[in-house]
Amino acid sequence: MKRSYGTLIVFVIIGAILGGIIGDLLTGVDALSGVMPYLVHTYPVLDMTPATLNLYVIKLTVGLSFTPNLMSILGMVIAIILFRRY
């Protein structure tokens, strides 16, 4: 099976999403209540305000924001390890 950059990007995006979801699910666990605020605190890396293009028939608004937390970064690292292993 040939590995490509596109597959790596898909792995990293899925890892980030799953890491963020797992982090949100673990916020309700009482045993982790002391450490979870640090793991799910978001850090804004890229924040582009939405830009609007009005063509009088279609109005298009595009914006981009990248605000990972430590759990999503951990998910990305695990995804890269899994990608390199398989």
Rank of each mutant, 00 (worst) to 15 (best):
H41P: 03
G19H: 00
L46Q: 06
M1L: 03
T52C: 06
Y86N: 09
N54G: 04
V10R: 11
V40I: 09
Y43C: 02
L46G: 02
A31W: 07
H41S: 14
D30N: 15
I81F: 07
I17M: 14
L18E: 00
L18N: 08
I22T: 13
L60S: 09
I73F: 09
D47E: 15
S33N: 12
D47K: 03
P68Q: 01
I80D: 04
M36P: 03
G20L: 07
M71I: 01
L60F: 12
D47G: 10
H41G: 08
T27P: 04
A51F: 12
V77H: 02
P50I: 12
G63S: 09
I13M: 15
A31K: 11
D47Y: 13
L64Q: 02
V57A: 12
D24I: 02
D24T: 07
Y56I: 15
A16M: 15
I78E: 06
F66G: 00
D24Q: 15
V35P: 08
S33A: 10
T7S: 13
I17W: 09
Y5S: 09
F83M: 11
L18P: 05
G20F: 06
Y5D: 10
S4A: 13
L46V: 14
L60I: 15
I17A: 08
L53I: 14
N69L: 05
T67R: 02
I13S: 09
R3E: 01
V77G: 01
F66Y: 07
T67P: 03
V62L: 14
I9T: 12
S33D: 13
G20M: 04
L74C: 07
V35C: 10
A51R: 13
R84P: 01
G63C: 06
S4F: 04
V29L: 14
I81P: 00
I17S: 04
T7Q: 13
L46E: 00
M36V: 14
I58R: 13
I78Q: 02
S4H: 15
L55G: 07
M1D: 07
R84W: 12
I58W: 12
T49N: 11
Y38M: 15
G34M: 14
V12S: 08
S4G: 14
Y86R: 13
G28A: 13
V62H: 08
V45R: 10
Y56D: 14
D47A: 05
L74Y: 00
G75D: 01
Y5P: 00
F11V: 10
A79F: 02
M76R: 04
I22F: 12
I58S: 06
S4T: 15
V62W: 11
S72G: 04
M76A: 09
G15Q: 05
N54C: 00
A16D: 04
G20H: 11
G34Y: 12
A31L: 13
V62R: 03
